[in-house]
Design a protein around this nucleic acid. Sequence first.
DNA 1: CGTTATGATTGAAC
DNA 2: GTTCAATCATAACG
Length: 347
Amino acid sequence: MKMRLDHPNEMLTGLTGLGGLSQPDVGDPDSVRKQQSLGQPQQDIGDILQQIMAITDESLDEAQARKHALNCHRMKPALFSVLCEIKEKTVLSIRGVQEEDPPDPQIMRLDNMLLAEGVSGPEKGGGSAAAAAAAAAAGGSPTDSSIEHSDYRAKLAQIRQIYHSELEKYEQACSEFTNHVMNLLREQSRTRPISPKEIERMVAIIHRKFSSIQMQLKQSTCEAVMILRSRFLDARRKRRNFNKQATEVLNEYFYSHLSNPYPSEEAKEELAKKCGITVSQVSNWFGNKRIRYKKNIGKFQEEANLYAVKTAVDAANVSAQASQANSPATPNSGISSIPPHFIVLLK
DNA sequence: CGTTATGATTGAAC
DNA sequence: GTTCAATCATAACG
């Protein structure tokens, strides 16, 4: 199975666009420069670009020094307060882009499924519980089914491992990136006003972006699990016949209740226990048997006679004992020739 | 091989 | 929910 997982870096590039979004143009380096040369004629843009392009490693120190000088400029506090004022006015327009919806229904759905499948959640113990339940549902003799499912479990564990390592990677990348951005903002807050709310908003944006990637991961993991399930757990692919004794028991019941071959829930449970199969398998068997018997009664005649004799003997024994004990029991089982309305009266 | 038997699944019906 | 009918996919058989 191939897991299509997008690399975190891809979204990092996408995030930069979002980060700048709706950010008022009050604090870029350009405006700082303008503050410094407030009284002088406007500098040519080309000039500035030239300066930027001319920056080299050696000039970085110089730039740092200039920045420091800027911070210590006597006009700085006053300008900063002006910026704060502007910001105060524009901050109103920023609001309203804040509505959140933390309980994303889709991610909840995926989470639930991964949990049910044993991919997320507790280690091995919980993981094999789902597999064990599936094994029980698949039925068959317990000897060979465990071998098949060990393969399944190994594959599931593999998916699980990939899922968790990817998840961890994403989380690490997310916190790293968040830290980076926060540091950047904190650094910038020395030259432009940045409210804690803004930082919060930024962090929220980052987290949202990362959680959308997480959802992709969860989605593809779910897909992989579903494929695995259909490959290994689709019992149709590895059908095993019931053992002889089980079919014996089922046939016995079927032909001894031929007039009404519909076992009740309790009867099904008992048959299931006797045959070492599940209740739904019993239901399947009776469903198949009824339709196939009806379709070609002739073909089953021999079988019917065989079991009829068998149960007739049993019934004879039972009724003999019963009639010996007390009142004549109703030989209601077997190929009863008593009309339905009499049976009703006898109940 | 092809054929038949058989357990499971699916979709419609009640 | 169950049952029927058709169908699928495999096992068992010759």
